[in-house]
Amino acid sequence: MKQFAIIGLGSFGLRMLEELYEITQEIIIIDKDKEIIEKYKDKAQAAYVADAINEKALSKLIPEEIDAVIVDLGGKIEVSIMVTNYLKKIGIKNILVKAQTDEHGEVLSMVGATQVIFPDREAAKRITPMLASSLLFNFMPISENLALAEVQANDYCLGKTLIEANLRQEFGLNVVAMRKVLHDDFLFINDPTYIFLEEDILLVAGTEDGINKFSSRSNIKEKQAIGDLFRSFFPKR
């Protein structure tokens, strides 16, 4: 089973602890705040009250063969850089560090971080497309050229079969799976003659631009609502 360490239980560190705890208990947590360690020690295999800036302490608490170390030291930019460098010296192969700015991220990469995380920026990337479209239920960037999204079937594909809609040609999207509005379980669409319904939520993969273009199409209810509003302002005489 894989083993992880989290240095600093800030908002990102705590979130990582919650997620990792779902898959393993092989977790080491380190923070200089005794109350925080006491509060979350039951979710870790080992919990230590220690100052991460102490290189000797880190080398004793974190085994060299550990699978990954996550560093979240809040706004302490200089400290996070020093700790990242210490971890590299220890021989840690996978070091994920929360960064505050692009410049901070560049320095972290230079001193040993294998992955730099910008939680606020990444959260904004996921939330913004959903605010822009009422048909977009979830959005997850995978890379610069690929994203996954949950999009409700709209007027472009309603009443069409999977083949007729041809989302790959029109929007550069691949339909990975589908679920119904009131259900959480996704099902693969194995039948190319399946006809899209209004309650269908499609899990699609493609570029951010393609997802935005497809999700910006109005659905029937939205068009009806706009039409009703227009008629309320300009009733027939």
Rank of each mutant, 00 (worst) to 15 (best):
R217H: 06
Y194M: 10
N138G: 09
G8L: 09
K88G: 14
V49G: 03
R217G: 15
E19Y: 13
I37H: 00
D200L: 02
D209K: 15
R217D: 11
E150N: 00
V181N: 14
R179C: 02
I29P: 01
A177H: 00
D200K: 05
P192F: 04
Q3L: 10
V204P: 05
E164N: 10
D155H: 09
I92V: 15
Y156M: 08
I53Y: 06
H104M: 04
V107H: 04
Q115F: 08
A50I: 09
I189W: 03
A124G: 15
A124M: 09
V49M: 04
L20Q: 01
E106Q: 09
L96T: 04
K76P: 01
I23E: 15
G74Q: 10
A44D: 13
Q45D: 14
V79L: 15
G8N: 13
K32D: 00
A99P: 05
E170A: 15
M130V: 05
G74W: 06
N212R: 11
M130H: 07
S80V: 12
P192D: 12
A123Q: 10
E103Y: 04
E26F: 01
S143E: 00
L158A: 08
E198W: 00
D184W: 08
S215V: 11
L61N: 04
L146V: 06
L20A: 03
A113C: 10
A52M: 11
A50T: 12
L202F: 11
T207P: 12
I36R: 14
A165K: 03
D185S: 14
G105C: 08
D102W: 04
E18W: 08
F233Y: 12
L197G: 04
F233A: 08
D51Q: 04
F171N: 01
R217Y: 11
S59H: 00
L14K: 10
N174Y: 11
K41G: 05
V151K: 01
I142T: 08
A47D: 03
Q115S: 09
L197C: 14
I77F: 05
D72V: 03
K236V: 14
V111S: 00
G112Y: 05
